[in-house]
Nucleic acid binder design. Structure first.
Length: 313
RNA sequence: GGCACGGUAGCCAAAUGGAAAGGCCUGGGUCUGCAAAACCCAUAUACGCGGGUUCGAUUCCCGCCCGUGCCU
């Protein structure tokens, strides 16, 4: 059996808690799909689940990377696929839980990411160039990719150039290699609910030593610049510690930015029509039960080549 | 009380004697190794009040109100 349950939703929607309950009920184990919780030492600020909250359910892909180094989707994909298979082999049901849409997509759709590691030196060099210059470079190297790429997005253009330079070939089309049969369950919350959940959670995190945590990260050698890259809590606490903003401004910023982040997450999720949106645990249980009973789908051999960028089934 | 500066959209903020920039917020969206990232699109009956000068005033003049700073 290669079934996989995905629990997703915007930040502060209560994914972790729901996942533990469901995992307990269905003999499952949890794999986190969160781009910040992979880092060691980012605990309170990233809302990492505690040992106690796990209630005996094994969790994976937490604390697998050093915050000094950048962790990427490709690394996530490899580790997660391996873990999921291991869990399945033991006869347990894997739950992929998190809010990082791209990470989830990398597993659910099994998109093949070009095997070109980020070349930080090259990126740094190209970052200095103007958008226009970069676009012209890409156009010369790979017309097809240049045609569809977001012309205003430096990061993407540089990445495309990076791939072509390394492989000496155009950027390959997106290929899907779906390895698991997955059921995606999404938690919905109204804007009001999210807003107040974010507020409550923020106060709690501050009371639980979030600032101390970030000071500790500093002591362990993380620069303020690096801390700011983690976004939200880490970014604005870092700014507060540098006295760029006041305590009050820090709180307001984290709140606002978290709300906006939740919105962006929903934008991502909304476009995936396969997600089953649920309002409570009962509903989730029902759809999981039904999903488990289904006969495994016949997997078509070979990989799919997508003509569009994402599948919106 | 005196002096100075200011009052432009929900917030910040520019310019201008002749159809009032921009940013934020907000809404929608994109996504091929940084994705809590990066990027795109949309959005406003906005010039404190009253009078005057003028063909025409947000802009110049007078008075008033409000805010900020300094002085007594």
């Amino acid at each position: 059996m290669n079934k996989l349950i995905v629990i997703l939703g915007p930040t502060a929607s209560g994914k972790s808690d729901l996942a533990v309950r469901l995992a307990k009920k269905f003999n499952g184990e949890i794999i986190s799909a969160d781009s910040r919780q992979v880092y060691k030492g980012l605990d309170i600020g990233s809302g990492k689940i505690t040992k106690k909250e796990m209630r005996g359910v094994p969790h994976y892909l937490l604390d697998v990377a050093s915050p000094k180094r950048k962790f990427t989707v490709a690394q996530f994909q490899k580790l997660a696929q391996k873990k999921i298979k291991e869990i399945q082999k033991r006869g347990k049901l894997p739950f992929l839980v998190g809010g990082t849409g791209f990470y989830i997509q990398s597993i659910v759709d099994g998109i093949k990411i070009p095997e070109v590691k980020p070349n930080w030196k090259l990126r740094k060099k190209f970052e200095k160039k103007s958008l226009k210059e970069l676009f012209l470079i890409l156009k010369k190297l790979d017309q097809k990719r240049a045609f569809v790429i977001d012309k205003n997005n430096k990061v993407r253009i540089i990445r495309a150039i990076e791939i072509v330079e390394a492989t000496k070939k155009p950027v390959p089309p997106i290929i899907k290699d779906v390895k698991f049969e997955s059921l995606q369950i999404g938690i919905t919350k109204s804007k009001k609910q999210l807003k107040s959940a974010i507020r409550k959670r923020l106060i709690k995190r501050l009371n639980h030593g979030m600032i101390t945590e970030i000071r500790r990260l500093r002591r362990h050698g993380l620069t303020f610049g690096r801390l700011e890259e983690f976004g939200l809590e880490y970014r604005y606490v870092a700014q507060y510690l540098q006295e760029k903003i006041t305590y009050q401004q820090m709180i307001e910023k984290i709140q606002k930015e978290s709300e906006r982040f939740a919105k962006r997450q929903m934008t991502w999720f909304k476009s995936d029509k396969r997600i089953h949106w649920i309002e409570d645990q009962k509903e989730a249980e029902r759809s999981i039960k039904k999903f488990i009973k289904q006969k495994p789908l016949e997997f078509s051999n070979g990989s799919l080549i997508l003509h569009g960028l994402r599948s919106r089934l």
